[in-house]
Design a protein around this nucleic acid. Structure first.
Lengths: 338, 338
DNA sequence: CGAAGGAAGTTATACGTAAAACTTGTGGAG
DNA sequence: CTCCACAAGTTTTACGTATAACTTCCTTCG
């Protein structure tokens, strides 16, 4: 409770140790070899410890001209996925003496005059996930090194991009389902204007379209269980032969699909197979456990941070998409009605 | 990609507008009324816009002696709950021109030399959730204004505390279950040394103990679905009359309990009732939907931030716990076997 | 008509740090 | 004995901002 007494500065430490402020900076900055005697150095460290000295970061940042802090822009914090991305990014950052500040982008936070007002100048770089490229230009205005996650490599203003191998994820899902014998598909798509989901939809259509005798119906829903349930219910109630497999853009959507299926008195996977995307905790909580594509969120964050570090150091970021892995569980089986 | 050219400073703006640096600071800091002519002010703003000027926050922070940034310490980011706390805190912070930096505390981030090394000096205050008080002293060393979430009001070193009304949550759950006729309870407890959960266990024992003819068995499990499933399965397999209701410290634990129950070939809620705590998305994803206690995470964060602002301004934080609300869904019913 | 007071600025300074440039003292080589 | 190299510091300065203190000019009023 004694935070009334102003914090000690390096000058206070210097006085206590009987040396100049410069000497303190040298010793504590670990640049003292050959410049300060070991005994003096120890005296300085001792004094710093006793006074509880912490360098003033604002002053240091000003002097150094950088902050060793980067901003991670995520679309929202509603899911474990971005928590994972953050964790991964923060881990790599910490290893390099960097900090990561989070900015959940769209609404949610309330209108700061400028979303970056509280951070902009104090940042060394930005990692932005799933944002429209134009919104992003407005934000960073070419001022800060930038890495984009989950973004079109072509349309990213020359910024480095790090992506999950979504195309391969679609391949694994469709091969699995086609291999089981499914031919009539419902795509329960996320109602989000994002490059990833567009690629996914396109790829899905292509892959399924290549096989003769297949059909693909697409419905969109916001990523909540209730919305997904209603959208899926409507689609399943439509006339004509019922789909035998529902491919969902997200595990939450899949949870909604479960409810719709169950409401019709049908069973998973006997009557209808369901697949998800993400592999959240949700996937193993529901019954039957969900066949889904595991996205390694932490690795995603790690790679994003590594790419940003590369940009900051003028190196070329490592290329290549992050592999994803289909996890087959109990929600998929061969169709009963051919 | 042109971030090679150094960013413009207020001096550059001054030169472009043909005024002194002080005038720029006055105008842009909105302190110019009666000090600078409107036409000059407009000229300055114009120049600032054209140069894309952003004040250097490091310099401002140094000058002002504060950062308008607070740290939010959370135990981990694995659940939506703390995402909600963050969102609430950030909302209030933004309204007051503050930023919130996140620090997921225990492991997870990897060993920075000092967890606060990257932030400490640049902070105005700390909101810490669910940490042991001693770990906390080590961290903040009486240096920064502090608000504790979910923490013992008695043992918090005089720091302000903001808590959920856990006691009332227990009351609602036990009254609901006792009212349905349940008498034999299994408490599936979170295996976490945290004040909240201790209070909860104690209160539960007291409340149930007050009613004649009741029994209460407690088992602990880490908060994962698999651990919870195994712990619950073991407990349910024990000899003696089987519990008719499982009270879980967390929705994820409840999801695990579902699996254990189902594995025994029993049905929820017909054979066994289950309750949770949190009201995550999970709660409505599982079947039947979970009867649980809704914690308003965002309000929790908001109140925490408000309390910290109060401390920073020398005011007394608002007292009073945050209300919680039992949400009755399909996982609870009267016991079939008396 | 002189002085006062306000408008519209400018000049100077401090915040705390890091590091370049300078100083002093000492031992050893020539 | 002189000079130099090196250890062990110190002095000084700059980073970009906000603001207190000062200046200058013009208007207005007694």
């Amino acid at each position: 409770m004694a935070h009334g007494s102003t914090r000690p500065t390096s000058r206070d430490v210097a006085q206590a140790a009987g040396v100049s402020q410069a000497a303190v900076s040298l010793v504590l900055g670990d640049k003292w070899r050959g410049r300060v005697a070991e005994t003096t150095a120890e005296r300085v460290r001792q004094a710093a410890r006793e006074l509880g000295y912490r360098p003033n970061l604002a002053a240091r940042n000003l002097r150094l001209g950088h902050t060793r802090t980067v901003l991670l822009v995520v679309p929202a914090l509603t899911t474990e996925f971005f928590a994972g991305v953050y964790t991964g990014a923060a881990r790599i950052a910490a290893q390099h003496g960097f900090g990561v500040v989070l900015y959940p982008s769209p609404e949610g936070i309330g209108p700061a005059r400028d979303p970056f007002a509280s951070a902009q100048a104090a940042l060394d770089g930005v990692i932005a996930s799933s944002m429209a490229a134009d919104a992003l230009t407005a934000i960073h205005g070419d001022q800060l090194p930038l890495v984009m996650l989950d973004s079109d490599p072509e349309g990213s203003l020359g910024a480095a991009t790090v992506n999950l191998d979504i195309t391969d994820g679609v391949r694994q899902v469709t091969e699995h389902l086609l291999g089981l014998g499914h031919r009539r598909f419902l795509h329960l798509a996320a109602d989000i204007a994002s490059w990833t989901f567009e690629v996914r939809a396109r790829e899905l259509a292509t892959r399924i379209g290549q096989v003769p005798g297949t059909s693909l119906l697409t419905v969109r829903a916001p990523i909540t269980i209730e919305d997904a349930r209603d959208a899926a219910a409507t689609a399943l109630a439509a006339k004509g032969p019922r789909p035998t497999a529902i491919i969902c853009d997200d595990d939450k959507l899949a949870a909604g699909a479960y409810k719709a299926v169950r409401r019709l008195g049908l069973r998973i996977p006997d009557d209808i197979s369901v697949t998800g995307l993400d592999d959240l905790a949700l996937a193993t909580a529901i019954d039957p456990e969900l066949t889904t594509v595991r996205l390694d969120a932490e690795q995603f964050g790690e790679r994003g941070m590594q790419a940003l570090l590369a940009v900051l150091e003028g190196r070329e970021p490592t290329a290549g998409d992050i592999p994803v892995q289909l996890v087959v569980r109990g929600s998929t089986a061969p169709p009963s009605t051919p």
